[in-house]
């Protein structure tokens, strides 16, 4: 192993460790992030970190074809972020005031349909009720 290969090898190992730490920190923001745009920003950042991982694998293995994969992953991440921005714009602000993941999940259940289904038990449609009145 020549000196140049040793330098590259140590740098790639250190960078892999650093990228792992930053990946975990970003995942923590995705889990914790109080609102939906916070999570979208963190997912965009995750795409960038994964592009960095792909570049490091390209250096380690020597396959330069990985650059094309990284570019296409960046394109997909950009389109996903644009689509999420449109979704946030059309959805409006209906986050719970104290951001809680479970609260936002349960709030998205359609309220009126559930209520009307509970009000009408089976077997007592309009016709049956009219007969019962007579």
């Amino acid at each position: 192993m020549t000196t140049a290969e040793t330098i590259i090898s140590y740098a790639v190992w250190l960078a892999l460790v650093v990228l792992c730490v930053s990946f975990l920190l970003t995942v923590w923001r995705v889990i914790k992030g109080p609102t939906l745009p916070d999570r979208v920003v963190a997912l965009d950042m995750l795409t960038g970190i994964v592009i960095g991982f792909i570049a490091l694998i390209a250096i380690r293995t020597g396959f330069t074809l990985y650059i094309d994969i990284a570019i296409s992953l960046g394109l997909v991440g950009f389109l996903a972020t644009v689509a999420f921005a449109r979704f946030i714009l059309s959805r409006g602000n209906r986050e719970a005031p104290k951001g809680d993941m479970m609260k936002t999940f349960t709030a998205s259940v359609p309220e009126p349909r559930r209520k009307s289904a509970a009000r009408r038990p089976s077997g007592t449609g309009p016709a049956v009720r009219r007969k019962a009145k007579k």
Binding site: A15, V18, S22, T26, M45, G52
Partner: peptide, 27 residues
């Protein structure tokens, strides 16, 4: 080749450092 390796290592470590700074800032 040692010079080229040094430049590559500098770019690698700089990129990883920027990613770490971004993750810390995000939190």
């Amino acid at each position: 080749d040692i010079l080229l390796a040094a430049i590559t290592a500098l770019l690698i470590l700089g990129g990883a450092g920027f990613a770490l700074v971004a993750a810390i800032g995000l939190n």
